[in-house]
Design a protein around this nucleic acid. Structure first.
Ligand SMILES: [Mn+2]
Ligand SMILES: [Mn+2]
Ligand SMILES: [Zn+2]
Ligand SMILES: [Zn+2]
Lengths: 143, 143
DNA sequence: TTCTCAATTTAGAATAATTCCAATTACAAC
DNA sequence: GTTGTAATTGGAATTATTCTAAATTGAGAA
């Protein structure tokens, strides 16, 4: 597969916001860019620090507002683990997460369609899942 | 299998606490009993209300302390969903959760050993999971 | 272009779950 | 019974997030 161009991502951003009657402001755009540039599941605080490199006067309230808007527009996923601060992820494909207990680093584990079907087979009859949340934790020994 | 008697559960409770050099106090015992009596994943606030039927002067701080102790002793699991208050569950067998979006009710989905192995097969090599957290949400249509 | 006005941003206050703290109480061992 | 540590308690503190009300922005109307 080809990776998305900056332009096609920009178009997707504009489109999804306009679809909901919302404005593609520079704050929203910058928050979204920050998430695309380093896909490490930052918290709102970390997003604030990164966005301020471009928009030094943006407020934390606005970062929270923008993140909520991006989640509502299905441009970003909100990721919650235990009771730690929410993290944000621009990977919209169905995926699980792995948190390394040593480093705290979070990895995306992309899932194939058949793997998702396997997951849903865990449900007894009568249960109809629209969503799932799967997080592993342990140690990652990567090359 | 036979279900555990009240006595054998009492023994397990005493044993696990004593193993860690902790006292099986009436507050800890009562919090644990409340979780066993109605396995509906109550929050700390809900546990407080139930425990006060037996111990009217117990404090919320003590409920939090007791729940933390029970989790540390592997008598109870702490269950977190999104950013809602922590819930507590005495089911120690590996299981997933299903939250009905209509009623908010939470169901345990017990998993067989082979199903757990299936889950761990989702991990690429280099990832070693000690734990997993699997939560479905959707609508439950039960008989 | 200027005007208008709803949408957005902003700073700071408020909220809510949880943790911390310092004082009291309980209780096991001596 | 005294002592010493663990546990409980009420209230203060913490922290992530949401709310509020005022200022700013910017797209479309005039
Ligand atoms: Mn944060
Ligand atoms: Mn609660
Ligand atoms: Zn992710
Ligand atoms: Zn459970």
């Amino acid at each position: 597969m080809h990776s998305k161009t900056a332009d096609s991502l920009q178009n997707k951003f504009n489109q999804k916001l306009l679809d909901k009657g919302l404005r593609p402001t520079k704050q929203r755009s910058c928050v979204y860019d920050v998430l695309l540039q380093k896909k490490d599941h930052p918290t709102a605080d970390e997003v604030l620090v990164r966005v301020r490199k471009k928009l030094p006067s943006i407020s934390l309230a606005t970062v929270y507002n923008c993140l909520e808007t991006l989640v509502d527009c299905s441009l970003v996923k909100q990721v919650n683990m235990d009771r730690s601060p929410s993290k944000y992820c621009p990977n919209l494909t169905p995926h699980a997460h792995f948190r390394c207990s040593k480093t705290g680093r979070i990895y995306d584990l992309n899932l194939q369609e058949d793997e998702i079907n396997q997951l849903k087979e865990l449900l007894p009859s009568g249960f109809n899942a629209e969503n799932f949340d799967l997080t592993f934790s342990g140690s990652a020994n990567l090359p």
